[in-house]
Write a protein that binds this DNA or RNA. Structure first.
Lengths: 216, 216
DNA sequence: TAGGATGCTGTACATGCGTTCAGTCGCCGA
DNA sequence: TCGGCGACTGAACGCATGTACAGCATCCTA
C-alpha cells in the first residue's frame, strides 16, 4: 500500500494533523504516541518511523503551525492597521485573523494558546511577531491621528497586544462567567464595543448607542 | 520520630508546600510523586499515606491555595476600589495583591496562573471571585465619578479584569520582548503609566510627564 | 523481471509511573 | 510496663509509556 489515506493526504500528513489536533487540546505531555497513531489510523511504530521520535513530531508540528500562522499574518500585512480601532472591528487582532482564515473548529488557536503560554522557542517567535504587528498598528493609529504614542510606545503596544491576547487566553473563563463566548459573533460585538469605547475615550466615556456602531 | 521536620512544620505540611512549589513550575502532570517526596525529604510511600493518592494531594493543594488567596482578597475587601485607577497605583489588581502579601519567590502566583488557565473547578472559583472584585471596583469607580458603567457593565468589568490578568499570564513573554519584567518595580511603573493613561483618556491621551504621577 | 528502496506492522523491551504492602520505630494512654 | 497506634520506610507490583527491531507488502528502477 502506498501511503495514501484520508482523501489524498499522505499518512505522514494525517499523523501530523492528528497530532496537532490532540496537542492543541491536551498538550504534548497529555497525549501518547499510541493515541496519535490510533487517531491517524496507523500503527505507533509508523509515527516513530516518520518523525524519529515523539519530540521530533512535536517539533515538526510546531514548525508547521508557525508556517501556517506566518502565512495568515503575511496576508494581513498590507492592510491598514487603523482598522483595529475602527467601527465594526472585531474584538481584537487575533480574533480578526482567526475568524477570517480559519474554519470553525480549527485546532490552531488552541495550539497557539499553548505555544504562547509555554516557554518554547516557537512560542517566543509567535509573541515577538505579534508584538511587531502590534507596534506597527500603533504607529498606524498615530499616523492616522487616532492615537498618540504615549510616553512609552513600546509599552503601549505591548499593553494593547496583551489585552488582545487576554480575551483569547481566558476565553473559556470569560464565557462561563459572562454567559457568552467573547469570540462568538455576539460576544465579539459586546466585547468590542466596550473595548473600543475605552480605547477611544477612556473609562469616563460612554460607548455609542447604536448596535456595534463606532465613535463618530 | 514524631512528624517534625523543616522547622516546626509537620511532614504533611512540608509535603504539601513542596508539591505546591513543584506544581506551580511544572504542573501536576509534570511532577512525579517520587520527586515531591525527595523535595520534602520523605519517602514516596509517605506522600500516599498522608494524601491517599497523587490526585488527593493535588486537590488538597488546590484547596490550600484557594484558602490563602481568599484570605488575601478578604483583607483587600474593605478598601476603596477607586485606588485601582489612581495615581501611584500598581500595574493592576493582582500585582498589587501579590506585591503586598507575598514574598519575592512565592510559588502562589505560578500556581494561580495554572489554575486560571486550566479547567479545574478551583480555577473557575478563582476567576469568578476576581470577576466579582472587578465588578465591585468598577462600581466604585462609577460612584467616584472616575468611570462610567458603559453600555454593558458586566463586559466592561470583564474587560478590565482580563487586561489585568494578561500582564500576569504573559509576564515572561512581555519581559523577554520589552526587556523589562512588567511585574518588577520598574516594569510596573512603566506599564501602569500607560495603562492609567489609556483608562483615563483613551488612546488619544498622553500620559502625564512626571515619573509615575497620575492624571491631574 | 530481478532487486532495492519505502511504507507499514506486530512484538518486544527497558524505563518510570502511581500505588500496595508488610514491617519498623517511637510515642502515649491504660 | 505494655499494648496499640500512627508516622514512616524499602521493596515490589502492575501498568503505560517511548522506542527498537525484524519482517512483510508494495512500488520504482534497471
Amino acid at each position: 500500500m502506498r501511503s495514501v489515506a484520508e482523501g489524498d493526504r499522505t499518512a505522514r500528513a494525517v499523523i501530523r494533523d492528528e497530532a496537532l489536533r490532540l496537542f492543541a487540546v491536551r498538550g504534548p505531555e497529555g497525549v501518547t504516541v499510541r493515541q496519535i497513531a490510533e487517531a491517524a489510523g496507523v500503527s505507533a511504530a509508523l509515527v516513530v518511523h516518520h518523525f524519529g521520535s515523539k519530540d521530533g513530531l512535536r517539533q515538526e508540528v510546531d514548525q508547521y503551525v508557525l508556517d501556517v500562522f506566518e502565512g495568515m499574518l503575511g496576508e494581513l500585512a498590507g492592510e491598514d492597521g487603523a482598522r483595529l480601532v475602527e467601527p465594526g472591528a472585531s474584538s481584537g487582532l487575533l480574533s480578526e485573523v482567526f475568524g477570517r482564515y480559519l474554519p470553525e473548529g480549527s485546532p490552531l488557536p488552541g495550539y497557539l494558546r499553548r505555544l504562547l503560554l509555554g516557554d518554547s522557542e516557537a512560542g517566543r517567535k509567535v509573541f515577538q511577531r505579534l508584538f511587531e504587528l502590534s507596534r506597527g498598528a500603533l504607529d498606524g493609529l498615530v499616523a492616522g491621528g487616532v492615537a498618540v504614542a504615549g510616553r512609552d510606545a513600546e509599552v503601549r503596544a505591548a499593553f494593547l497586544l496583551a489585552n488582545d491576547l487576554a480575551v483569547f487566553l481566558l476565553r473559556d473563563r470569560i464565557a462561563e462567567t459572562l454567559g457568552v463566548d467573547p469570540l462568538s459573533g455576539d460576544g465579539m460585538a459586546r466585547w468590542g464595543a466596550e473595548m473600543l469605547s475605552v480605547y477611544a475615550g477612556g473609562l469616563r466615556a460612554s460607548p455609542p448607542e447604536g448596535p456595534a456602531a463606532g465613535p463618530s
